[in-house]
Simulated scan of single mutants.
Amino acid sequence: MTLQFSVLASGSTGNAIYVESGDHSFLVDAGLSGKQMEGLFQKIGRDMRDLSGILVTHEHSDHIKGLGVAARKYKLPIYANEKTWNAMDNCIGEIPTEQKFVFGMETVKSFGSLDIESFGVSHDAAEPMFYVFHSGGKKLVLITDTGYVSDRMKGTIANADAYVFESNHDVQMLRMGRYPWNVKRRILSDVGHVSNEDAAIAMSEVAGENTKRIYLAHLSLDNNMKDLARMAVAQTLETRGIRIGEQFDLYDTDPRIPTALTAV
């Protein structure tokens, strides 16, 4: 079965990723309005009515803003762990019981030929977790919203064919920027977001012979730029013996423009 995905939107203004394999397709997070998400689906030639469900990573608004509306309109199952359900219950409106499913941390759920594995990350949410998709011998990893990448995470995500990997900020831009110090400290902490350089170090430690594509995701609008992120990641990888274009390629993501629907 072909495993395909599109990063519909990525950044502090809203996040949503589409993944499909065979008869099953999932939206990971719904951090934009229902109308925006419908428009993004149209751009990749897909329809939200055909979704098998929505997988939630954590309860921050840039990941669940449109979740309740989309679930009710299209009668979609929602999957999240118990602590995330409790944390977001008051934010997404009433969801019928038959649409609410618990997806525990560090577990695998199978949907036909598609296996979805959850793993914990380090972020200031109730119990944040991201997902690895396995199908037809291919492996796709989604990992953003983490202050660092632990050895446990690295073991789970190693040697994927494709990654959607957080590259949130340039440390100097963040330090010199307009954010109040308490916000800067949160972003720089172990429960914040990884910088361009830290992302690249983690990439160098998990990329393997299967790895062909890495998408730089969740870039800060205020403290990063696509060109800067790509350059910083490429430079750091090069110091660790990895040349972009030889082992794997880097790709941008955008807050408003979906990436092309791509086979892993």
Rank of each mutant, 00 (worst) to 15 (best):
F133K: 03
S135E: 08
S135A: 14
G136N: 13
G137D: 00
K138H: 10
K139C: 02
K139W: 01
D145A: 15
V149E: 03
S150R: 03
K154A: 15
G155R: 14
T156F: 03
I157H: 05
A160W: 04
A162G: 10
V164Q: 07
F165M: 03
D170F: 06
D170A: 03
V171W: 01
L174V: 01
M176Y: 10
M176E: 15
G177E: 11
Y179S: 11
P180I: 00
W181G: 05
V183Q: 05
V183Y: 06
V183F: 04
K184Y: 00
R185Y: 07
R186G: 08
R186V: 05
S189G: 10
D190A: 10
V191L: 06
G192S: 10
H193T: 05
S195F: 01
E197L: 07
D198A: 06
A202E: 04
E205S: 12
A207R: 07
A207V: 12
G208F: 07
E209I: 10
N210H: 09
T211Q: 00
K212G: 08
K212N: 12
K212I: 04
K212M: 05
I214L: 12
Y215M: 11
L216E: 09
A217S: 14
H218R: 08
D222I: 02
D222C: 12
N223D: 13
M225P: 00
M225Q: 13
K226L: 12
K226Q: 15
D227W: 02
D227P: 05
L228N: 13
R230Q: 15
M231G: 07
A232L: 08
A232Q: 15
V233F: 07
A234N: 05
Q235I: 05
L237R: 10
E238F: 02
I242R: 12
I244D: 10
G245F: 00
G245E: 01
E246Q: 13
Q247G: 00
